[in-house]
Design a protein around this nucleic acid. Structure first.
Lengths: 338, 338
DNA sequence: CTGAAAGCGCTTACAG
DNA sequence: CTGAAAGCGCTTACAG
């Protein structure tokens, strides 16, 4: 590998390293003549300024870190892609932090901001990996930061959200409208804000319809397919089987549908299934999955924009950017049997 | 945000900055007493060494870049996850380069190595984004680098591969074994090495079975679901419809199955479908997709290991690491009709 | 428009 | 075991 430095370019084009730097950073300060000469030398050698030298001097890294529990997940993948695209446009690079649900790794990635390796951070987990002192305003203690998907319990943080409770309520209402009264819920991971909100929405919709909440119909999951499979198996064993199942994620709904097919249930004639997310595979399932759509690309794009705003030294207009969800009715839900 | 530097720690614990640095990098060189004092100050302040200072000095960034065409893709997502995990274990951070098939972006990410921002690069596209001079051995001109998934046409590069041709041949052989003779192929993007190899395997299997290659049965796709849908629509219009379809990716196979269901074909009774990749959703389809499994996690892990080897200054034992594929027979393939 | 010089925050031979 | 000092490669006020 080459190790051409700014000095090489300087001597090759007969100017000082200051002028080389200016040619790159503020070309308008350099005479056309010199500029040309310098640019030529740069091109000939393939010189790329060493980012560390520059960063050390400017105290800016040009990076942002993304902290996510699992990028394999289609929801997260969709979001990160929009982030990357938006970051790239603004000249930032994305450092990928897949935490695999380990706190230690979360901390590790947060430290990249503390150590100056990234200028800002996007957090998709419910924990704030920075220690706060109570005697100072929080905004002064935190780096540029945006939180999404799993809300951190702190009102001073910039967030991009959807209304999970209303989304869940809409899902259940859709089922109620179809005549279902025995509606199961397959939850996400214990105590995650998104699951808590969706559960609240589920309960609210039932309560409003004067239907009693039945604990047996509420199953714990973890948003992944496998847990949807298991949850459905449990539900099928119940004496009073549900006629409809609201899964808090599409992945779990997909798992649930697999179980139903396995035991020869017809969807939706025997049992309706509705998901949450609208990942790209949902419309490709058999039957096509009815779900609550999260605007993944928009979430990613907005996260990055709010972060960029902070990175530029501005205060974003609002702490919370709320994006709309949407009920997408497809084929996996239908009228209650009989 | 805090800006605690090594000097702050030094003065707080009454030692020189050299000793602070040593406490962190080579604690065995520091007396237990001093070490304790320094560590305490570090803990109390939450000091994190500035990476740029260190990197500038050591000429190591501790980062690796991953250049991929689309991380939303389940194949890539699976691979990158293993990479990230392996990198993290070795103390490296992953810079994510989603090129979205733009050459400019590919170059951009490659420049991160040239500019010292990353110590090594993992390339999953068929282009080498480094200019080579013919008068020097290639190995001296390239940074630590590993290529996978889409082979770069250069024998001096470290690669992690599967035998795409043999994989495709196995897929078609499976179909032949079931009695099919009219077998369509849905290819990936034009001129990509993986598609060329799989096409060669498809042709070889047919030729070996004394079946003539029929151009009408070979459809161009791009590995994505949408193109599988379109390809299947084309095939269904043919006077002599195929009884089996080999899609060069699972995503396309999933699209093809959707089209078949749309027009009331039964899979596999009317038409068999086989994919390539074995992404996690394939086993969740209806019917469950028969496919050629790529060991995604293994690919990712091996890529990183071969890169790590180079990063440590060693020469990896072999230029090419070949991993096994596997035919996974599920429900989407069956005997030829009649 | 250009150059000399300082300094960003670290690490590490060198000397003691 | 520890410190003083040099230097990694840049950028940018300052002076001219």
């Amino acid at each position: 590998m080459s190790k051409i430095g700014i000095k090489d370019i300087a001597s090759q084009s007969g100017v000082s390293s200051a002028t080389v730097s200016r040619t790159l950073r503020s070309p308008e300060l350099v005479s056309e003549d010199t500029r040309k000469r310098v640019l030529e030398a740069i091109k000939a050698t393939g010189y790329k300024p060493n980012r560390f030298g520059a960063s050390l001097r400017t105290q800016k890294s040009g990076n942002v870190v993304v902290v996510m529990p699992d990028i394999t997940n289609q929801v997260n993948a969709g979001i990160i892609r929009a982030i990357e695209s938006e970051a790239h446009k603004a000249g930032y690079c994305v450092l990928l932090g897949d935490t695999q649900n380990q706190e230690e790794r979360e901390q590790h990635y947060a430290d990249m901001v503390t150590s100056g390796q990234a200028d800002g951070i996007l957090i998709f987990t419910p924990n704030l990996p920075f220690s706060l002192k109570t005697d100072k305003p929080i905004s002064e203690q935190l780096p540029p930061l945006v939180n999404s998907c799993e809300e951190i319990a702190n009102d001073d943080i910039y967030k991009v959200v959807i209304d999970n409770k209303a989304g869940a309520r809409t899902a259940v209402q859709h089922l109620l409208d179809l005549g279902h009264t025995c509606i199961a819920a397959v939850m996400g991971p214990k105590d995650t804000p998104s699951t808590l909100d969706r559960l609240a929405g589920y309960k609210q919709a039932l309560t409003e319809a004067n239907i009693e909440i039945n604990r047996n119909l509420i199953i714990r999951g973890d948003y992944r397919t496998e847990s949807g499979i298991e949850a459905m198996e449990k539900l099928l064993r119940l004496r009073h089987r549900p006629t409809a199942v609201f899964c808090f994620s599409d992945d779990m709904a997909i798992g649930a549908m697999n179980t139903l097919r396995e035991y020869d249930y017809r969807i939706p004639q025997d049992i309706s299934v509705i998901g949450f997310d609208d990942i790209s595979y949902s419309k490709l399932m058999y039957p096509k999955l009815t779900t609550i759509r999260q605007p993944l690309e928009d979430i990613g794009r907005n996260c990055m924009r709010v972060l960029l705003e902070q990175l530029r030294g501005n205060k974003p207009a609002q702490k919370i950017t709320e994006l709309p969800f949407e009920l997408v009715v497809r084929q996996s839900t239908g009228p209650v049997p009989r």
